[in-house]
Amino acid sequence: MELPFADAISGYFEIPIDNARRLLPPHLEPFELHHGSGILSMTVFDMPKSPVGGYRSVTMAIVVVPYVKGAPGERLPKAAVYPYLTGTNAFMPRQIGSSMFHLPHWGDNLKIDLTREGKSITAAVAAGKDPVATLTISEYEWEPTEYVYQSFMKDSSGSYRAEIEVKGEISDHEEETGKLVLHEHEFHNGLSIPDVFDVPFREVWTRNAVQTFGPLVQIQTA
């Protein structure tokens, strides 16, 4: 399945490894950035031309240890994530994301605004009148990209893994120019907000891209 998107902006933040572990199912291991530090990612997608109409989504994830098959010529994943909560501003993509991809979703529509200013882009996420999170990242240099990452999912039906290929243009850097504000909100249940670095150590912006989802592999039954 192919999902084109106009922009995807991601910030990667250090969090205590204990907090990362609390957000993961037991069969997944958090990736350690440093000793004792896990990685929280927040990604906002802008998909104006999806098969179910234009929409935006926000995904909170923990970076985890990838699954390496060890097959000859295997294309290694650049990263692996466990999205512990996704939110959208429309019903249909939420329905599809939950049923087809087993992604845990915030139940109501979110308001997701994207604002560009110079080389920066800011995503403001709100639930009704309540602010949830604001993520700002900046661009560096654009280059074509083509890579694979893994996503692990878990819901009441079991645990799954998918390989997702991304083709498009990418800008990634570690200039520490971005900013994250997490507001006290149920959306962040399980996350110790004061312990999350408020400056991303890596900022990734992908644009004019397509995500191609490989076959979903069930790795555990319910």
Partner: peptide, 27 residues
């Protein structure tokens, strides 16, 4: 790197680094 400099689809050795070989497959 300018976009035109990269041949689309070709994986460069610098696309990977030591961090990608920290975990291996199987037992």
């Amino acid at each position: 790197m300018k976009a035109a400099q990269k041949e689309s689809g070709k994986v460069r050795f610098t696309d990977y680094d030591y961090s990608h070989f920290y975990y291996g497959a199987g037992d």
